[in-house]
Design a protein around this nucleic acid. Structure first.
Length: 157
DNA sequence: GCCAACGTTGGC
DNA sequence: GCCAACGTTGGC
C-alpha cells in the first residue's frame, strides 16, 4: 500500500471557507471547480483516499493554512462542468468525456493558530514548499511529510 | 489597486 | 506550431 501523501488545497474564503466545510454534514464536501489541467492531472493520478489536506485560505490580507482535512473519495467527474447554470460549466465537456474531476474531503481540524504565508516563508525548514514559490497559482500543490508535520504543529499553537 | 506570473485563445 | 494578446490568480 502506498504511503499516505499530503497536499495543500487553496480556496478563497469568500467562495468556500473552512467554516463552510465545518458546517457540512460530517464536515464532508465535494472539492469541485478545478479548471486547470495540471491540477486535474494531480487529482487523477496522485491524490488518494486517506491523503492529508492542508486547507489554505487565499486572496485575503493574510493568506494562511487554517486547518486540515482528509481525502475521503478519490477523483470522479465534477458534476458542475455539465450544469449550464453553474459558473464552472464547460460546454466542451460531456458525461461521456468529462474533462474535470472532483474529490471529496472531510474536515479533520481547524487550527487554533492559522499558519500564515509570511510565517511559512520565515521558516527555513519550509524553503522550497510549492505554495511559497513565486508565481505559484496551482490550487492543489504537494506537501512533503516533514513540512506537513511542522505546519500542523505550528497550527496547533 | 497594482502587477508578476502563467494559462488560454486565436490569428497567421 | 508560433507567439502576441488577453484573462485570471493571488500576493503584496
Amino acid at each position: 500500500m502506498a504511503r499516505r501523501r499530503y497536499w495543500l488545497f487553496k480556496s478563497e474564503p469568500s467562495t468556500y471557507s473552512i467554516d463552510d466545510l465545518a458546517r457540512e454534514p460530517g464536515g464532508r464536501a465535494m472539492w469541485d471547480g478545478i479548471r486547470n489541467y495540471q491540477v486535474r492531472n494531480l487529482l487523477r493520478d496522485e491524490v488518494r483516499v486517506g491523503d492529508g489536506v492542508l486547507f489554505h485560505h487565499s486572496g485575503i490580507a493574510e493568506p494562511a493554512v487554517v486547518g486540515t482535512a482528509r481525502v475521503v473519495r478519490a477523483a470522479y467527474p465534477d458534476p458542475t462542468q455539465f450544469d449550464p447554470r453553474h459558473p464552472g460549466y464547460d460546454s466542451r465537456s460531456s458525461p461521456d468525456a468529462p474533462r474535470w474531476l472532483a474529490v471529496d474531503i472531510a474536515l479533520v481540524e481547524t487550527f487554533s493558530r492559522p499558519v500564515t504565508l509570511a510565517a511559512m516563508r520565515a521558516e527555513p525548514r519550509l524553503a522550497g514548499l510549492a505554495v511559497l514559490r513565486r508565481g505559484n497559482r496551482l490550487s492543489v500543490t504537494p506537501v512533503p511529510a516533514d513540512a506537513w508535520r511542522l505546519i500542523v504543529r505550528l497550527g496547533r499553537g
